[in-house]
Design a protein around this nucleic acid. Structure first.
Length: 133
DNA sequence: ATTCTGACTTGCT
DNA sequence: AAGCAAGCCAGAA
């Protein structure tokens, strides 16, 4: 799960990724696994930057998420104004515009992260000097 | 070993 | 645009 959180940490302010994207970058598990991790340990990272492929915020946290989106100017769709006032109305993150695309330097980090995960799955040891990243 | 469950996705009405 | 059925993956019961 630390691997999932590590990836979320790489997502920059103002952008976002889908659960499935994280799984893909990690090269292991699926969207549901990522969702499971986020529901239990997400509170320690920028959880609002990980959402459904449709652009909908995580269930039960749409209000808090929306405020973050507005704060960091994340591209949005729909009537979020009304939603904020009346709680009515549908809106979503414009994932087409907000989706995070890792840069070269990010891929290096992702490699290390997925590598550690891989080895953990094989029950092999991970050297101390690689446990941080 | 089997069944259930879920911060998921996709494809088809 | 919105709902529904299936597929999918792992952890829990």
């Amino acid at each position: 799960m630390t691997a999932v959180l590590a990836v979320v940490d790489l997502v920059p302010s103002g952008s976002a990724v889908a659960y499935g994207d994280v799984a893909e970058l990690l090269g292991a598990g699926g969207p549901r696994q990522v969702g499971a991790v986020m529901s239990h340990y997400g509170s320690s990272v920028a959880w609002w930057r990980v959402l459904r492929a449709s652009g909908e915020a995580p269930p039960g946290h749409e209000v808090a998420a929306l405020q973050h989106y507005l704060a960091e100017a994340t591209p949005l769709h729909g009537a979020y104004e009304a939603f904020l006032r009346t709680g009515e109305g549908r809106w979503r993150v414009d994932l087409a515009a907000a989706r995070w695309t890792p840069a070269d330097t990010d891929f290096d980090l992702l490699d290390v992260i997925s590598d550690q995960l891989e080895r953990r799955l094989h029950k092999l040891s991970v050297p101390d000097d690689e446990m941080t990243v």
